[in-house]
């Protein structure tokens, strides 16, 4: 079984700052990390490989040359091979152009070693869109199953997989033919501590780095900024909400004012 996990290097949005004058990201303010959802995607591949007792895990990323750092992180979690597509032609890609570029790289990987399963994180924390995974599935013409919270069964013989998929108000059990593409939620697993051997391998690991010309037949008008139908019109801080009444005084006074407010809400409050 060949599992390919698509991963992204992202700025840690918990720390990142925005320049209030220009409304742009101060990228230097945040360290670059492996997108947390993608870490769970790699971990799930490692879990499936260990259950099946065999298989190979490749990871694929698109980004600047320093994105090889997150591939190393994936090797540490347990991936076997790592591929980075890196080229100025990919720059400025929105989700449509990103899924195109990644699908071309996946086709190249599959031409050497056919892919049974593609796993992506639910979304990347810098974009929060969740659109690239299903987009890749469409381009490879394999079924996507998004928002996966559990891989319940993998049947290598009849090449099917049974998945628990999160819904707005519950979950569903879905059976999909392989190859297929999953996007995973964080609750799918816990990131395990890596064995020392993985860390040593990761430290020395050299990723395969491909440029556009390595990808075979590619329509360059579908790449990067040129291939991206969406553009950012403007950035703004949202219109300020009016704000309400501040309850002043000592904490006792504040609480008693608040109690007055809460007890005023007769239709909400039910004192039996």
């Amino acid at each position: 079984m060949h599992i390919v996990v698509c991963v992204k290097q992202v700025p840690d949005t918990k720390i990142i700052k925005i320049n209030p004058k220009t409304n742009t990201l101060d990228r230097r303010s945040a360290p670059a990390i492996l997108n947390p959802y993608d870490a769970h995607a790699v971990q799930e591949a490692v879990r499936l490989k260990s259950i099946l007792g065999r298989g190979k895990i490749s990871v694929l990323s698109m980004g600047p040359p320093q994105a090889t750092e997150v591939i190393k992180k994936c090797i540490e979690i347990g991936a076997d091979e790592g591929y980075l597509i890196s080229d100025r032609a990919f720059a400025g890609a929105d989700t449509l152009a990103t899924s195109y570029a990644l699908s071309k790289a996946l086709e190249k990987i599959a031409s050497v070693d056919p892919i049974d399963l593609v796993i992506c994180g639910k979304h990347a924390i810098d974009g929060d869109t969740g659109q690239v995974g299903p987009g890749i599935a469409r381009r490879l013409d394999i079924p996507p199953v998004t928002n996966v919270i559990e891989v319940s069964e993998v049947n290598s013989n009849d090449r099917t997989i049974v998945i628990k998929r999160k819904l707005s108000n519950g979950y569903e059990l879905v059976q999909a033919n392989m190859p297929c593409l999953l996007t995973v939620e964080k609750e799918i697993n816990k990131i395990e501590y890596s064995p020392l051997s993985n860390m040593l391998k990761a430290a020395r690991y050299k990723s395969h780095i491909w440029s556009v010309s390595d990808l075979g037949e590619v329509n360059i008008t579908q790449l990067g900024l040129k291939g991206s139908p969406t553009v950012v019109g403007k950035m703004f801080t949202p219109p300020k909400l009016e704000g309400g009444k501040m309850l002043d005084g000592t904490s006792d006074e504040q609480v008693s004012q608040l109690m007055e407010v809460l007890l005023e809400q007769k239709e909400l409050l039910n004192v039996k």
Binding site: I18, N23, I125, D128, T230, K234, M235, T237, P238
Partner: peptide, 14 residues
């Protein structure tokens, strides 16, 4: 909301 939600972005598809 964009970039982890500290700012709003208007997206256009021209």
């Amino acid at each position: 909301p964009a970039f982890g939600g500290n700012i709003m972005a208007t997206i256009l598809c021209k």
